[in-house]
Nucleic acid binder design. Structure first.
Lengths: 205, 205
DNA sequence: ATAGTTACGGACCGATTGGTAAAATAACAT
DNA sequence: ATGTTATTTTACCAATCGGTCCGTAACTAT
């Protein structure tokens, strides 16, 4: 019987995500990767086959952990405005309170490796389509929900704004810029119910 | 008297922009750079001092050529809706008709090198602030112009959407997604004049 | 204790990296 | 022809790159 592996693949994948998120694909060397995962590259090569395999594992981890978390926020919210408010404000809160300026790894990968690698491009496209569906479902849900077609179009717009917000976070934009973007984006989310006072989350002014 | 330099620095900078735009900073090797500029690295080192200097020159060129072009489109348009329509539709037209999927080099740099290099970070921040001012000026202009404060907030939102649109372009998103984003973003641009029929560019539905 | 299978850690590999140096050649004015 | 500076070519550099190889180790079954 074989020698048992001494590390958790999921844990390694999370560490891989951290280093690729911070430094990008080309910017992360195998030394960086070894340091981040606390593993030797031979161990990593045995599981992931190549540096590119490590990157794809990082992308899958981001989908499973972070994109799924966004989906959960929207699905478990009392209503879409609350859901989107939690999601978008969470991005800004992380940036301002915790100094988390990594941005969105999906955006980063869209710019970094999607143009360079068909496999990454396909995975990115699939994840973006999933996020759009998540946003559209949220916008179509509840008493104030819009129709399916309108939901999809609005979802695309809010998702573009969301991606733009995350680019601004990574660029180092100031808190007031980020807050303005969030406040304005939330105005695109239809109110939960027009006749229910106090339920809408974002008010202009 | 000295031998005159045999290449235009501006032309070299434009070629540098092309290669960094396509491959990113770390992804572009000196071999790539020599091929793109058709110059030897010694010649480039004499002018730009380092690879990072070449990147900063590329960024300055992007500001001077492409960001300035956006500013010109908005300033020379008949009204803000027309200006933003030209700007945003131009992005999608380039992607669909010409296959230009490079995205926005300012976005790319925000994600790629701004987190890694303070000088790049500062330049990027300055360029983003300039673009915001440009959008705000456009939104505040004309008979349908909004107030300064509102213009700035809307500018931030539309700029975020614009950045998101360009991330989607680079990620390879389909034309209909891009068109929806543009159409939806244009709804945020106040109509030129409420009583002037036929002048508004983007109508819902 | 030994064999079989797989994992770990250090060594190794050819290629490439960003950058520098020197020599030959070139372009210009004098 | 000379002086000055630039370009090109060639060479060089240490370091690092992504990836592979091999000796040792961990486990179970025999």
């Amino acid at each position: 019987m074989a020698r048992p592996r001494e590390f958790e693949i999921d844990e390694a994948a999370r560490a891989l995500l951290e280093v690729f998120w911070a430094k990008g694909y080309e910017g992360a060397s195998l030394s960086d990767i070894e340091a981040a995962t606390r593993l030797n590259k031979q161990s990593l090569y045995r599981v992931f086959e190549s540096k590119r395999g490590m990157y794809l594992a990082a992308l899958a981890t981001y989908d499973r952990d972070h994109v799924a978390a966004a989906r959960t926020i929207l699905r478990q919210a009392a209503d879409p405005p609350a859901g989107f408010a939690t999601l978008l404000n969470g991005v800004v809160d992380s940036a301002l309170a915790s100094g988390d300026r990594r941005g969105c790894f999906l955006c980063n990968a869209s710019i970094d490796q999607a143009p360079q690698d068909p496999e990454t491009s396909g995975r990115v496209a699939s994840m973006i389509a999933g996020l759009e569906r998540t946003f559209a479902e949220a916008l179509a849900s509840g008493p104030g929900g819009v129709g399916k077609v309108d939901a999809r179009r609005r979802a695309r717009k809010i998702m573009a704004g969301y991606f733009g917000l995350r680019v601004l976070v990574r660029s180092g934009a100031a808190g007031r810029v980020l807050r303005d973007v969030v406040d304005q984006l939330l105005e695109d989310v239809p109110a939960a119910e027009k006749s229910a006072p106090g339920k809408a989350v974002s008010k202009p002014g």
